[in-house]
Amino acid sequence: MSSPRPPVIRAERLSRWYGDVIGLNDVTAVVSEGITGLVGPNGAGKSTFLRIVSGELHPSGGSVTVLGEVPFANPRLHRRMGYCPEGDRFFDDLRAEDFVRHLLRLSGWPRPEARRRAREALAEVGMDHARDTRLRACSKGMRQRIKIAQALAADPEILLLDEPLTGLDPVARHETIELLRRRAERGISILVSSHVLHEVESLTTRILLINRGRIAATGEMEEIRDLIDRHPRRIRLEGPEPRRLASLLVDREDVRSLGFSDGALLVETTDPEAFYGDLPGLLVRHGIPLTGLSSPDDRLQAVFDYLVNG
């Protein structure tokens, strides 16, 4: 049971159209303190959600508040917010340090303090060696880290990161994940989007699944797993007699399909709890040995596939 946390972002019946195309469709969601993963495939509406939450876009319908404030063109809220947009093109002509410093100056920091913060932020993301490099000359991974640096530089209370790990090599990805965790431990709230599920899995257990502009599921991984239990679950049974085992399972009401893969039996059940409960007795009664049992659906990718694809 997770402890109740105060909402940082509250969206109610939030919708957004781009002409005839729906970006977000009637989204109601609450994001609490800590790290929350906004997960969905490309085109799901993640960036649209973040752009509305950051105050870059108006909602077409519904409402959203961040730290209790309406975000669009709200300088009072933007003082407390760090935002890392998705786009890979920005301030091409500036050097890394000048870019971060310019945005800090626009946030009201005096010149010396802006310089100090820019250097510290770049060092924190491992880009202190690139502070004199023009952004157009940086690799995608470097630019990605520099973008994160500008979002962190003003010590915001809430951090909105749109696909921040895209383009990073494994080491940089690990370092960035650790960095975000450290920031979260210091009390900062982070909403991070990704279409790569294991990235989010390594950052947080709290997720918001979005697909085709709609929230498919939201909550802790455990809660999502409870949801998944109401969906068919695939179970892989390995043993020497998969066909005999299949003949015993074929008449069960909760078994939706049976198949064979690499000598193993693949069962799709609509009631995993009952299936797991009955399986040991069935195996003992008929003397069928089992060498392996696993569910490919226990990973977040499977949860995601279930919830977005039905």
């Binding site: 870059e56 933007h78 947009p85 301030f91």
Partner: peptide, 18 residues
């Protein structure tokens, strides 16, 4: 065109100042 507006317009200053 340069992709700078998301950064400029989410600063804690009035857009009109920019």
């Amino acid at each position: 065109g340069a992709g700078n507006l998301p950064y400029l317009f989410t600063r804690p200053v009035p857009r009109s100042a920019v």
